[in-house]
């Protein structure tokens, strides 16, 4: 565990010592802020509905940001030749993946913390509960966690950061499109696609301030499966 945290701390400081981390935060804040402003100013709606719209908009920026945050994780190490340092140290591949993922998750949490002023405005000026805000952020964090894990897998599969971004983006889009496939197919296939869809009904409950165990389990399962696959990819690369 110590080595996981050591890797996570170094990686997180990497985000904060380079320009890319601040650019991601700035772009997410600007896009989410602009969209929230359009929703809040131009449409008359209940404060609860406005908060739901905020979480809906934020989920989009979180998914895109997750791809950008995670694409560097392992591909950059390979590009810079620093993966050999981790490979030749007494660290398990699962610890490398876990450390990298935790740093990305911590960075995403920091990014989400920067957006809190928007729901805080709704909280102060409308009639919504702290619970609704908290559950919405829990949903964003779980959705982000799943996307970051998929991005970690994409980064493990790729030799360059750009390629990692493309691979991760494609994987996230495939999981998103399951929602569309669920709508155009019939049961039981539609149920399967619906259950696999990254956004769809899994995130809608969080937007409304509701926590369903199946949604939490889904996001945790996607996270675990993607990280497990990323670990296997790292292990397989030692044989090549």
């Amino acid at each position: 565990m110590t080595r996981v945290l050591l890797i996570a701390r170094r990686e997180l400081s990497g985000y904060l010592r380079t320009l890319s981390g601040y650019v991601i935060i700035a772009v997410v804040l600007a896009v989410t802020g602009l969209l929230f402003n359009v929703e809040a100013v131009n449409r008359v709606q209940l404060s609860g509905q406005l908060l739901e719209r905020f979480f809906y908009l934020a989920s989009g920026t979180v998914m895109v940001a997750s791809v950008f945050i995670s694409m560097r994780l392992l591909a950059e190490e390979r590009q810079a030749g620093t993966l050999a340092l981790l490979y030749s140290s007494p660290v398990r591949d699962a610890e490398i993946v876990a450390g990298k993922f935790l740093s990305a998750l911590a960075f995403l949490a920091l990014l989400l913390a920067c957006t809190v002023f928007m729901p805080a405005l709704v909280l102060l000026n409308g009639k919504v509960s702290y619970g609704h805000v908290g559950v919405g952020y829990l949903g964003l964090l779980l959705l982000g966690s799943a996307c970051l894990a998929v991005g970690t897998l994409g980064s493990a599969l790729s030799r360059t950061q750009v390629l990692a971004g493309i691979v991760s983006g494609c994987l996230v889009v495939v999981l998103l499109l399951c929602w569309l496939l669920a709508r155009v197919t019939e049961a039981p296939l539609s149920d399967v696609f619906g259950a696999l869809a990254l956004h769809g009904h899994h995130f809608q409950a969080f937007m409304s301030g509701l926590v369903h165990t199946r949604d939490v389990v889904y996001y945790l399962a996607v996270t675990f499966a993607a990280l497990f696959a990323a670990t296997r990819v790292l292990e397989a690369r030692r044989w090549r």
Binding site: R10, S13, G81, A84, S88, P90
Partner: peptide
């Protein structure tokens, strides 16, 4: 073992001291 690959595995944004401290702890 201590391994130096053909390209030194260095994190450019870190200072020399911080980097070596990181590697030392990584190796136990």
């Amino acid at each position: 073992i201590g391994f130096l690959p053909d390209t030194p595995p260095i994190y450019e944004e870190m200072t020399v001291g911080d980097y070596l401290s990181f590697v030392a702890q990584l190796r136990g």
